[in-house]
Protein backbone atom coordinates (compact mmCIF):
# COMPACT_ATOMS: atom_id res chain seq x y z
CA UNK A 1 0.00 0.00 0.00
CA UNK A 2 2.69 2.43 0.97
CA UNK A 3 5.35 3.69 -1.40
CA UNK A 4 8.55 5.67 -1.10
CA UNK A 5 9.13 8.97 -2.84
CA UNK A 6 12.47 10.11 -4.21
CA UNK A 7 12.77 13.64 -5.50
CA UNK A 8 15.76 14.51 -7.65
CA UNK A 9 16.73 18.07 -8.55
CA UNK A 10 13.21 19.37 -8.82
CA UNK A 11 12.56 22.92 -10.06
CA UNK A 12 9.01 24.25 -10.00
CA UNK A 13 7.92 27.19 -12.15
CA UNK A 14 4.87 29.43 -12.38
CA UNK A 15 5.30 30.66 -15.92
CA UNK A 16 8.73 32.35 -15.96
CA UNK A 17 8.90 32.56 -12.18
CA UNK A 18 11.02 29.93 -10.47
CA UNK A 19 9.12 29.15 -7.28
CA UNK A 20 11.09 26.22 -5.88
CA UNK A 21 14.71 25.51 -6.80
CA UNK A 22 16.68 22.31 -6.87
CA UNK A 23 15.00 20.16 -4.25
CA UNK A 24 16.19 16.59 -3.67
CA UNK A 25 14.87 14.39 -0.88
CA UNK A 26 13.93 10.82 -0.09
CA UNK A 27 10.69 10.12 1.74
CA UNK A 28 10.45 6.70 3.38
CA UNK A 29 7.29 4.61 3.17
CA UNK A 30 5.14 4.34 6.31
CA UNK A 31 6.50 7.52 7.79
CA UNK A 32 5.30 11.05 8.43
CA UNK A 33 7.32 13.83 6.87
CA UNK A 34 6.64 17.45 7.80
CA UNK A 35 7.49 20.50 5.69
CA UNK A 36 8.02 23.67 7.69
CA UNK A 37 9.11 27.15 6.71
CA UNK A 38 7.89 30.73 6.44
CA UNK A 39 4.95 31.69 4.24
CA UNK A 40 5.70 31.84 0.55
CA UNK A 41 8.79 29.62 0.76
CA UNK A 42 7.28 27.10 -1.65
CA UNK A 43 6.47 24.20 0.65
CA UNK A 44 2.85 24.00 -0.50
CA UNK A 45 3.95 24.37 -4.10
CA UNK A 46 6.47 21.57 -3.64
CA UNK A 47 3.84 19.39 -1.95
CA UNK A 48 1.50 19.89 -4.87
CA UNK A 49 4.14 18.76 -7.33
CA UNK A 50 4.17 15.38 -5.56
CA UNK A 51 0.78 14.53 -7.09
CA UNK A 52 0.92 16.89 -10.05
CA UNK A 53 -1.79 19.10 -8.59
CA UNK A 54 0.16 22.28 -9.23
CA UNK A 55 -0.44 21.79 -12.96
CA UNK A 56 -4.06 22.77 -12.36
CA UNK A 57 -2.84 26.37 -12.12
CA UNK A 58 -2.35 27.80 -15.64
CA UNK A 59 1.30 28.17 -16.57
CA UNK A 60 2.68 26.03 -13.75
CA UNK A 61 5.13 23.25 -14.54
CA UNK A 62 7.99 21.30 -12.96
CA UNK A 63 11.39 20.08 -14.12
CA UNK A 64 13.25 17.21 -12.55
CA UNK A 65 12.29 13.81 -11.27
CA UNK A 66 9.80 12.62 -8.69
CA UNK A 67 10.09 8.85 -8.34
CA UNK A 68 7.24 6.93 -6.73
CA UNK A 69 8.81 3.55 -5.93
CA UNK A 70 11.15 4.16 -8.87
CA UNK A 71 8.53 5.33 -11.38
CA UNK A 72 8.93 8.94 -12.53
CA UNK A 73 5.72 10.94 -12.05
CA UNK A 74 6.95 13.37 -14.69
CA UNK A 75 7.99 10.72 -17.19
CA UNK A 76 6.75 10.77 -20.75
CA UNK A 77 3.16 9.60 -21.17
CA UNK A 78 2.35 9.57 -17.48
CA UNK A 79 -1.28 10.54 -16.93
CA UNK A 80 -1.66 13.01 -14.04
CA UNK A 81 -5.01 11.40 -13.24
CA UNK A 82 -3.31 8.07 -12.55
CA UNK A 83 -0.78 9.84 -10.35
CA UNK A 84 -3.49 11.52 -8.33
CA UNK A 85 -5.34 8.29 -7.74
CA UNK A 86 -2.13 6.92 -6.18
CA UNK A 87 -1.19 10.07 -4.28
CA UNK A 88 -4.16 11.51 -2.38
CA UNK A 89 -4.42 14.99 -0.99
CA UNK A 90 -6.13 16.79 1.90
CA UNK A 91 -6.43 20.56 1.67
CA UNK A 92 -6.08 23.46 4.03
CA UNK A 93 -9.77 24.28 4.14
CA UNK A 94 -12.19 21.35 4.52
CA UNK A 95 -13.93 21.02 1.16
CA UNK A 96 -16.58 18.30 1.18
CA UNK A 97 -18.77 18.33 -1.94
CA UNK A 98 -21.79 20.43 -0.98
CA UNK A 99 -24.20 18.56 -3.24
CA UNK A 100 -23.41 15.16 -1.73
CA UNK A 101 -24.33 13.36 1.47
CA UNK A 102 -21.68 12.18 3.93
CA UNK A 103 -21.84 8.71 2.43
CA UNK A 104 -21.55 10.01 -1.14
CA UNK A 105 -18.64 12.21 -0.13
CA UNK A 106 -16.73 9.17 1.08
CA UNK A 107 -17.65 7.29 -2.08
CA UNK A 108 -16.85 10.31 -4.29
CA UNK A 109 -13.58 8.87 -5.57
CA UNK A 110 -15.37 5.71 -6.67
CA UNK A 111 -18.61 7.21 -7.88
CA UNK A 112 -17.19 10.19 -9.72
CA UNK A 113 -15.03 7.79 -11.68
CA UNK A 114 -18.13 5.77 -12.53
CA UNK A 115 -16.67 2.56 -11.17
CA UNK A 116 -19.27 -0.09 -10.46
CA UNK A 117 -19.51 -0.98 -6.82
CA UNK A 118 -22.09 -3.20 -5.15
CA UNK A 119 -24.15 -1.67 -2.41
CA UNK A 120 -22.60 -4.10 0.13
CA UNK A 121 -19.04 -3.19 -0.91
CA UNK A 122 -19.96 0.48 -0.82
CA UNK A 123 -21.27 0.14 2.74
CA UNK A 124 -18.10 -1.64 3.79
CA UNK A 125 -15.90 0.96 2.12
CA UNK A 126 -17.81 3.82 3.76
CA UNK A 127 -17.53 2.21 7.17
CA UNK A 128 -13.85 1.29 6.90
CA UNK A 129 -12.90 4.71 5.52
CA UNK A 130 -14.86 6.59 8.16
CA UNK A 131 -13.44 4.33 10.89
CA UNK A 132 -10.00 4.99 9.42
CA UNK A 133 -10.67 8.71 9.78
CA UNK A 134 -12.05 8.34 13.33
CA UNK A 135 -15.38 9.72 12.21
CA UNK A 136 -17.58 6.63 12.06
CA UNK A 137 -19.06 6.88 15.55
CA UNK A 138 -19.98 10.52 15.08
CA UNK A 139 -21.76 10.19 11.75
CA UNK A 140 -22.94 6.58 11.45
CA UNK A 141 -26.56 7.59 12.17
CA UNK A 142 -26.69 10.38 9.61
CA UNK A 143 -24.79 9.14 6.58
CA UNK A 144 -27.48 10.54 4.30
CA UNK A 145 -27.20 14.06 5.68
CA UNK A 146 -25.16 16.62 3.71
CA UNK A 147 -21.46 16.70 4.49
CA UNK A 148 -21.49 20.47 4.76
CA UNK A 149 -23.60 20.16 7.91
CA UNK A 150 -20.68 18.79 9.91
CA UNK A 151 -18.37 20.89 12.06
CA UNK A 152 -15.07 22.09 10.59
CA UNK A 153 -13.03 19.35 12.27
CA UNK A 154 -15.49 16.67 11.26
CA UNK A 155 -15.50 17.99 7.70
CA UNK A 156 -11.71 17.76 7.60
CA UNK A 157 -11.82 14.16 8.85
CA UNK A 158 -14.50 13.49 6.23
CA UNK A 159 -12.06 14.80 3.62
CA UNK A 160 -9.41 12.44 4.97
CA UNK A 161 -11.90 9.56 4.81
CA UNK A 162 -12.66 10.56 1.24
CA UNK A 163 -8.95 10.56 0.43
CA UNK A 164 -8.26 7.13 1.95
CA UNK A 165 -11.37 5.61 0.35
CA UNK A 166 -9.60 5.59 -3.01
CA UNK A 167 -6.78 3.58 -1.36
CA UNK A 168 -3.83 5.75 -2.33
CA UNK A 169 -0.20 4.91 -1.56
CA UNK A 170 0.69 8.36 -0.31
CA UNK A 171 -1.39 11.02 1.43
CA UNK A 172 -0.38 14.67 1.13
CA UNK A 173 -1.78 17.14 3.65
CA UNK A 174 -1.56 20.87 3.02
CA UNK A 175 -1.88 22.57 6.42
CA UNK A 176 -4.80 20.32 7.33
CA UNK A 177 -5.29 21.82 10.80
CA UNK A 178 -4.83 25.53 10.16
CA UNK A 179 -8.59 26.14 10.00
CA UNK A 180 -9.39 23.95 13.03
CA UNK A 181 -9.65 24.37 16.79
CA UNK A 182 -7.15 22.63 19.15
CA UNK A 183 -9.44 19.65 19.88
CA UNK A 184 -10.09 18.93 16.21
CA UNK A 185 -6.37 19.45 15.59
CA UNK A 186 -5.59 16.81 18.21
CA UNK A 187 -8.07 14.44 16.56
CA UNK A 188 -6.37 14.92 13.19
CA UNK A 189 -2.90 14.46 14.69
CA UNK A 190 -3.97 11.20 16.36
CA UNK A 191 -5.36 10.15 13.03
CA UNK A 192 -2.08 10.93 11.26
CA UNK A 193 -0.28 8.74 13.77
CA UNK A 194 -2.68 5.89 13.07
CA UNK A 195 -2.70 6.06 9.29
CA UNK A 196 1.09 6.18 9.00
CA UNK A 197 1.13 2.44 9.57
CA UNK A 198 -0.52 2.07 6.15
CA UNK A 199 0.41 5.16 4.20
CA UNK A 200 3.27 7.47 3.46
CA UNK A 201 2.15 10.80 4.90
CA UNK A 202 3.56 14.18 3.93
CA UNK A 203 2.24 17.19 5.80
CA UNK A 204 2.81 20.92 5.41
CA UNK A 205 2.37 22.84 8.63
CA UNK A 206 2.98 26.27 10.08
CA UNK A 207 2.77 24.88 13.56
CA UNK A 208 6.20 23.70 14.70
CA UNK A 209 4.82 21.90 17.75
CA UNK A 210 2.63 19.98 15.38
CA UNK A 211 5.60 19.07 13.22
CA UNK A 212 7.52 17.87 16.26
CA UNK A 213 4.51 15.90 17.54
CA UNK A 214 3.51 14.05 14.41
CA UNK A 215 6.47 13.74 12.11
CA UNK A 216 9.41 11.34 11.85
CA UNK A 217 11.41 13.56 9.55
CA UNK A 218 11.18 17.29 8.95
CA UNK A 219 12.19 19.38 5.97
CA UNK A 220 12.87 23.08 6.45
CA UNK A 221 12.27 25.33 3.44
CA UNK A 222 13.35 28.93 3.24
CA UNK A 223 13.41 31.83 0.84
CA UNK A 224 16.13 34.46 0.61
CA UNK A 225 13.81 37.30 -0.27
CA UNK A 226 10.74 38.30 -2.26
CA UNK A 227 10.97 37.13 -5.85
CA UNK A 228 13.69 34.59 -5.02
CA UNK A 229 12.98 30.89 -5.32
CA UNK A 230 12.32 28.75 -2.25
CA UNK A 231 14.96 26.16 -1.35
CA UNK A 232 15.20 23.11 0.82
CA UNK A 233 17.57 24.16 3.62
CA UNK A 234 17.68 21.13 5.83
CA UNK A 235 16.07 17.71 5.83
CA UNK A 236 16.69 15.46 8.84
CA UNK A 237 14.94 13.43 11.53
CA UNK A 238 12.54 15.66 13.43
CA UNK A 239 14.43 15.44 16.72
CA UNK A 240 17.59 16.64 14.99
CA UNK A 241 15.86 19.54 13.30
CA UNK A 242 14.40 20.80 16.55
CA UNK A 243 17.20 19.94 18.96
CA UNK A 244 20.32 19.88 16.93
CA UNK A 245 19.91 21.72 13.62
CA UNK A 246 22.95 21.83 11.38
CA UNK A 247 22.15 25.10 9.60
CA UNK A 248 21.93 28.53 11.18
CA UNK A 249 18.67 29.39 9.30
CA UNK A 250 16.98 26.30 10.65
CA UNK A 251 18.04 27.05 14.18
CA UNK A 252 16.79 30.64 13.90
CA UNK A 253 13.47 29.50 12.55
CA UNK A 254 12.71 26.67 14.98
CA UNK A 255 13.81 28.77 17.96
CA UNK A 256 11.61 31.68 16.86
CA UNK A 257 14.50 34.04 16.21
CA UNK A 258 13.69 34.21 12.54
CA UNK A 259 13.73 37.36 10.44
Amino acid sequence: MSKRIDVENLNVYYGDFLAVQDVSMNIEPRSVTAFIGPSGCGKSTFLRTLNRMHEVIPGAYAQGKVLLDGDDLYGKGVDPVTVRSMVGMVFQRPNPFPTMSIRDNVLAGVKLNNKRISSKDADDLVESSLRGANLWNEVKDRLDKPGSGLSGGQQQRLCIARAIAVKPDVILMDEPCSALDPISTLAIEDLINEIKTDYTVVIVTHNMQQASRVSDKTAFFNIEGTGKPGRLIEYAPTTDIFNNPQKKDTEDYVSGRFG
Binding site: M53, V56, T82, G88, N95, F97, A108, L112, R162, A163
Partner: peptide, 26 residues
Protein backbone atom coordinates in the same frame (compact mmCIF):
# COMPACT_ATOMS: atom_id res chain seq x y z
CA UNK B 1 -15.09 27.38 -5.56
CA UNK B 2 -11.87 26.12 -7.10
CA UNK B 3 -11.36 24.01 -3.97
CA UNK B 4 -14.12 21.68 -5.10
CA UNK B 5 -12.45 21.15 -8.46
CA UNK B 6 -9.12 20.50 -6.74
CA UNK B 7 -10.74 18.11 -4.26
CA UNK B 8 -12.11 16.17 -7.19
CA UNK B 9 -8.84 16.18 -9.12
CA UNK B 10 -7.02 15.00 -6.00
CA UNK B 11 -9.26 11.93 -5.93
CA UNK B 12 -8.01 11.02 -9.39
CA UNK B 13 -11.15 12.14 -11.18
CA UNK B 14 -10.83 13.29 -14.77
CA UNK B 15 -11.50 16.87 -15.70
CA UNK B 16 -14.64 16.29 -17.75
CA UNK B 17 -16.06 14.09 -15.02
CA UNK B 18 -15.23 16.74 -12.43
CA UNK B 19 -17.13 19.29 -14.50
CA UNK B 20 -20.06 16.96 -15.07
CA UNK B 21 -20.41 15.56 -11.57
CA UNK B 22 -19.05 18.27 -9.28
CA UNK B 23 -19.02 21.69 -10.93
CA UNK B 24 -22.37 21.58 -12.74
CA UNK B 25 -24.36 20.02 -9.87
CA UNK B 26 -22.98 22.68 -7.56
Amino acid sequence: PNELREASYALGVRKWRTILKVVIPT
